[in-house]
Design a protein around this nucleic acid. Structure first.
Length: 588
RNA sequence: GGUCCCGUAGCUCAGUAGGAUAGAGCGAUUGAUUCCUAAUCAAUAGGUCAGGGGUUCGAAUCCCUUCGGGAUCACCA
């Protein structure tokens, strides 16, 4: 049984009412209902839900908003689930649903458990989320970690709403950087053989992470590359280095709980002729030409030279200038291989592609979207989510990092210090295009301003109540099946209903976050849900023991509240599952 | 100079693709612990949504413009 999305449910009801009005001649035919929305009221005094239906349809139908609203209200009042409906303001219809409607959600949640809110699609769509794709030239840093979490959670969101999702990593193993990597490894290799290599030359990677790789290579191959020409060792060392770095990166990802379904290699794509193929296709469509770009407008003219280049007509697809696809040495630019890569994705059946990039690649978005339009003949769509920098802090002070001074803090070090769950949650506490301060001290504090703790604590409190309940009831009396049969009519406190309503909004929250590509909404939702629970908890004070969850002289009331508490634990667990975090049972 | 992102309470930020009287947390002030974990909660104070114009029933949200901050700008990925 699929859980009810009450926004969609009420919208469907309203559309039915409108269709009836059309049939009865009270509303002109062929109205466009697309603009109609059903939303939570901002001010709860206005009711549970509001719809703009009358305002949206008033003008095209030639009716006064209030007259049309009155007719819709009449229809709404016929529904069993509607307690009240009234016209307000410029033509809003405010709706209050009966308590029993909300109580019924608890049964749904208890039935569904952690899968509450999931949707199954009859014909599942496919979506490809490509994220991390860090160059295989070293361990991951904290910024990569943010992209990893955002991509991973976004992919989880799509799974939850019924899509077939592929989590993909694109290995940039074909450009200059991996040659540099190979040369850097060569130095470390010589070092491992006991040769004094001195300082690592400028332009090579000085990172210590290559020392181990150098030792391994020396162990495997002995001294066979010593004294050889670069042309002889470059390729095998490159392969060795990339393997070593990808192993490192996969370990980093695993420690963050991120596992990709597919790793695509840029080099494979080039060597298998994928780029040649896309170029032939584009040439046939006259989208490639030899030309000279005009210099960028502005002051940066110092080293500009007029140079004929092989260009892609990106301007035909919304980009600002045409883009080069070949370097002067004849090899493909990154853009060229990226076009081939996205064609490959499209051919694998992904009409919807989402890429997570660092904000420093923002200037690249337009051209890639232009390219996708061109190669898929506008059949595919690419959305790029940019994630901004993470500022690592320690107790309010920025952490100074320098690769040269060796004070660079890797993602792995942060995970080891604060734990993967904390990292995953904190990465979602800002929308992805805003900079994020990550304070290594504060995220471990057990206080209200640590959102991870705050949410986990609410789950732990649920568990605590359920543990305590064992003293009042036998185990079978508070099984899920038994709780489902409790008398929900006992749940009448505004705080209780507010909490249940928020739980009932989970399916819509999930869907909205997925469709808007905004995983951070889940973290905010969980925080709000927890706040609602903590507030209710505090109501059961010494003066008002009747609002405690466990009321010893009233077992039926207590069982209903246990059903609510159990449901809440399930919704929180469901939300944490999307984020990729284990809920905790207790915190002591 | 071009392009993109951003500008919301003293601070850090939300604002559910245009909805009603703009919301949280921190900080400040004042309260609540014989109680299921007070690691929490409640209340008060705090705003020209950077400024100006426009679009419409209605704008923090969309368009134009000015100011301010950031990213990026042909053969790096």
């Amino acid at each position: 049984m699929a859980a009810l999305n009450y926004f969609e449910y009420m919208r469907d009801n309203i559309v039915d009412i409108l269709n009836d009005l059309v049939v009865s001649g009270n509303l002109p035919q062929s109205q466009n209902f697309k603009q109609i929305s059903v939303e939570p009221t901002r001010d709860k005094a206005h009711g549970d839900l509001a719809t703009n239906a009358a305002m949206v349809l008033a003008k095209p139908s030639g009716l006064k908003p209030h007259d049309l609203a009155g007719q819709i209200v009449a229809g709404l009042l016929q529904l069993d689930c509607v307690l009240s409906a009234e016209v307000a303001g410029p033509g809003f219809i405010n709706i209050i649903l009966v308590d029993s409607f909300w109580h019924a959600r608890l049964s749904e949640i208890l039935d569904a458990g952690i899968s509450y809110g999931e949707t199954k699609l009859d014909e599942p769509k496919s979506v490809n989320v490509e994220y991390v794709s860090a160059n295989p030239t070293g361990p991951m840093h904290v910024g990569h970690g943010r992209g990893a979490v955002i991509g991973d959670v976004l992919a989880n969101l799509f799974s939850k709403i019924g899509y077939n999702v592929t989590k993909e990593y694109y290995i940039n193993d074909a450009g200059n950087q991996v040659d540099v990597l190979a040369r850097s490894l060569h130095i470390r290799y010589l070092e491992a053989l006991g040769i004094d290599v001195g300082e690592i030359p400028d332009g090579l990677y000085p990172g210590e992470y290559l020392i181990d790789a150098g030792k391994e290579l020396a162990k495997k191959d002995g001294s066979m590359w010593q004294g050889e020409k670069e042309a002889n060792w470059l390729k095998p060392l490159r392969l060795f280095a990339i393997d070593a770095m990808m192993k490192l990166i996969r370990e980093d990802l695993l420690s963050l709980g991120v596992v990709h379904d597919t790793f695509s290699s840029e080099r494979n794509l080039v060597e298998s002729g994928g780029v040649d193929e896309i170029m032939t296709i584009l040439e046939d469509r006259k989208l490639i030409y030899e030309g000279v770009l005009s210099p960028p407008k502005g002051k940066r003219l110092d080293d500009w030279e007029k140079r004929p280049q092989t260009l892609f007509r990106a301007t035909l697809f919304g980009d600002d200038v045409d883009r080069p696809i070949k370097k002067s040495d004849g090899s493909w630019t990154y853009f060229a291989t990226d076009m081939a890569y996205h064609l490959d994705k499209f051919r694998r059946g992904f009409r919807v592609m989402i890429n997570i990039w660092g904000a420093d690649h923002g200037g690249y978005v337009k051209r890639m979207q232009a390219a996708v339009k061109a190669i898929t003949k506008k059949d595919g769509e690419l959305d790029v989510q940019l994630c901004q920098m993470v500022n690592l802090m320690d107790n309010g002070e920025p952490v100074k990092m320098s690769k040269r001074a060796g004070t660079f803090i890797t993602l792995r070090e942060v995970i080891d210090k604060v734990g993967k769950d904390v990292v995953r949650f904190i990465m979602l506490t800002r929308k992805n295009d805003a900079q994020l301060d990550f304070d290594l001290t504060k995220v471990l504090e057990q206080s209200r301003d640590n959102p991870v703790f705050y949410v986990q604590y609410s789950h732990a409190r649920c568990c605590s109540v359920l543990r305590q309940a064992m003293e009042m009831f036998k185990v079978e009396e508070i099984s899920i099946a038994a709780l489902k049969n409790s008398n929900y009519k006992n749940l009448t406190d505004p705080g209780e209903l507010a909490l249940i309503k928020m739980m009932a909004a989970w399916p819509q929250t999930l869907k909205g976050a997925a469709q808007a590509h905004e995983p951070h909404r889940i973290a905010y939702y969980l925080h709000d849900l927890s706040a609602s629970f903590h507030a209710l908890w505090a109501k059961g004070s010494k003066e008002n023991t009747s609002l405690r969850f466990l009321v010893e002289d009233n077992p039926p009331l207590t069982l209903a509240r246990l059903a609510m508490v159990k449901s809440l634990a399930m919704v929180i667990a469901s939300g944490l599952e999307v984020i990729g975090i284990e809920p905790v049972q207790e915190m002591r």
